[in-house]
Amino acid sequence: MPMPETVSLRINGKELSVAPGTTVAAAILIAGHSAFRRSVAGTPRGPLCGMGICFECRVTVNGEPHARSCQIECMPGMEVRTGD
């Protein structure tokens, strides 16, 4: 099966196309958001470890909260929400 050239997903309601294999974290950065979430004390946070350990890159993916965006590849039609 030939690989599709791009994958389209929505980040905070806005459509974005990325190369297949791109992680959700990379896609969020591409979309121009560096703050993925607010910490317990309300400070902005973005990815730190890039390997699924720090939990700083958590966003809501298809309605599931606390998804580590650095560990998930973009899929067609995915709905991603930051800032929770």
């Binding site: 190369a19 990379a26 902005p44 973005g46 470890c49 390997m51």
Partner: peptide
Amino acid sequence: PNVMGAGGLQAMVKSG
């Protein structure tokens, strides 16, 4: 945000 691990930024670049 944008302060990342060294390996962390590398991983981010490797993943798109």
